[in-house]
Amino acid sequence: MPRALHAELQKAHRRHDLAVCLLVPLVILVWVGYSAPEVDSSTVHPFSALFYMGPTVDAILMPIGMAVLATRLWDVEEKGDFPKLLYTLQSRRSLFAAKAALGFGEVLLIAVLETAILLALGWWKGYADAVPASHILYHFVCTLAVCVMLFASELLLAVLLANPLPALCVGVVGALVGLFSAFMPPIVSLFVPWGYFIPLSSFVLASWDADTRIAVYGMRAFRPLLLAWVVVLAAAFFAFAWRAVREKEV
């Protein structure tokens, strides 16, 4: 595995993978940064408001972002016509494991930055209310889990179809459907994996008064069952992707 991982890193050279990984959090930074409420505005618990915004932004950006990462990771082999040589040099298992590891590393980086950005923005804006560490951690874990699940599903599509177009289109449609599911009755959002950021989120808009225009944000209970389901989905997609790599005839 170390040798295979080293090969993956060599292939990533000059592909500007890091830049692409950083692009996603950058967009989050700009978006949330512009939309973040001011301290004296009509938002109660602005820090919670920030963490409430995060999942909605994620639901739009992440499906496409993960599609970009996954297709680039696999497409490099197709572009170089390399599988038939690689399979004589290394086992398919080590190739897949190395790709999955590198992919996971990229997704982890993005998830860490996403949470860090939300925290940094809140601190920079001088929000007074504090968010309990457990909720921050939960937010990070949920974001990571859903992103990994999305990444694995896109990787599966990229391997099966050897063409980035369908995988990307699924990401696009998924983002649209996921975003919309946030505005649907809560039960619908349980059936839309791309939008799982939103039902998993432990932050809510507690109340919005149309007259005073005061928005109150709060917190709610964690949803461990849904989180577990996301992890199961992620594992399943990885397993299917692994099977696809193993069975694919060159």
Partner: peptide, 9 residues
């Protein structure tokens, strides 16, 4: 292929 699409987003 994919990066310009994300840039569009």
């Amino acid at each position: 292929f994919a990066v310009p699409v994300f840039l569009g987003l």
